[in-house]
């Protein structure tokens, strides 16, 4: 399984990279390669050009700006996972990264790469969505921000245009009072999720849920907010019955299909159980 022929371009600047993208009918950005290269090897993807942004200046930074963690396009997942400052600012990231594949993949794969690849069963898009993050995108027409809600369109499809490159991801810092959790069910360690849930919530002084955001992944064609579930939780005391009801309500937020390994019914069942479990865990971490 070897890649087909392509033009290989390794620009040193962002402008040169964008130019390269526009010069070819079909081109692909190579950063960590952990999602791209398998498609090349299977010849599922046969782009005319590969634009390797590994040498582009300015993409390897981790910066803390305006309560956001800005992660450059070439920053590796494992780097983020091990970074203590990031962990303090947004502990959801490290916990999510533990579920992503295996260490050698995380050593080379990038945070931005996972977002750009937008696998419906991936963890990082769900984290971006639940934290209200965004990506910075540079193209021939300039730079723009795409919020998480607007980024993920479909399995393996984002709203980034073919002549644009994601240059950084912004993950908001979490407030120190937040409760947070991520959990998933998968067949083997490191596999894509059969179903997964991310939670971010906060509690009032008396323990009532003041805010709640939940995203589900692995369950449909992209990471989605579980709005109906959120509404059930907000204002409640997050008691067992509320959690059970909220879990059941998750089914109304998603569209699920059977596949050959997993029935839709099972997925929804698991989703409901995960909602209850993650909300409980998040609540135990929240400070009133």
């Amino acid at each position: 399984m070897k890649p087909s022929l392509f033009e290989y371009v390794a620009p040193a600047s962002l402008d040169a990279a964008i130019d390269a993208l526009t010069n070819y009918d079909s081109s692909a950005v190579l950063a960590g390669g952990q999602s791209l290269i398998p498609t090349l090897n299977f010849r599922l993807g046969t782009p005319d050009a590969i634009v390797d942004i590994g040498q582009v200046v300015g993409l390897s930074g981790i910066d803390f700006v305006d309560s956001q963690i800005k992660i450059g396009a070439m920053v590796r997942q494992r780097q983020v996972e091990l970074d203590e400052r990031i962990h303090k600012a947004n502990p959801l990231l490290r916990e999510a990264l533990h579920y992503v594949a295996h260490i050698p993949i995380r050593n080379r794969g990038t945070i931005v790469g996972s977002l750009a690849h937008a696998d419906a069963a991936a963890e990082l898009p769900a984290v971006l969505l639940v934290t209200g993050g965004a990506v910075e995108v540079a193209g021939a027409k300039g730079v723009r921000l795409i919020s998480a809600e607007d980024l993920f369109r479909f399995h393996l499809t984002t709203t980034v245009r073919s002549d644009e490159i994601i240059t950084a991801a912004y993950f908001p810092e979490l407030s120190p009072n937040s409760g947070w959790a991520i959990d998933e069910v998968c067949r083997r360690r490191g596999d894509y999720a059969v179903a997964g849930v991310c939670v971010l919530l906060s509690l009032d002084g008396d323990g009532t849920c003041a805010s709640a955001k939940l995203t589900a992944f692995g369950i449909g064609t992209r990471a989605v907010r579980l709005n109906i579930v959120e509404q059930k939780l907000i204002g409640s005391r997050l008691d067992a019955q509320t959690l059970a009801d909220a879990g059941k309500a998750a089914a109304d937020c998603v569209e699920v299909v059977d596949d050959t390994q997993t029935s839709g019914v099972y997925r929804l069942h698991v989703l409901a159980a995960l909602v209850a479990r993650t909300v409980k865990r998040a609540a135990s971490r929240a400070r009133r």
């Binding site: 398998p38 390797d52 050698p104 050593n107």
Partner: peptide, 29 residues
């Protein structure tokens, strides 16, 4: 496997383990 799952091809690149089947040689300049 040439798709990064089995791990047989794992080497150490710039001090970090990685799948050599998911890396182009040209990236190793």
């Amino acid at each position: 496997c040439e798709h990064g799952v089995c791990g047989c091809c794992t080497v150490i690149i710039d001090g970090w383990s990685g799948r050599s089947c998911l890396t182009l040689a040209v990236q190793m300049d």
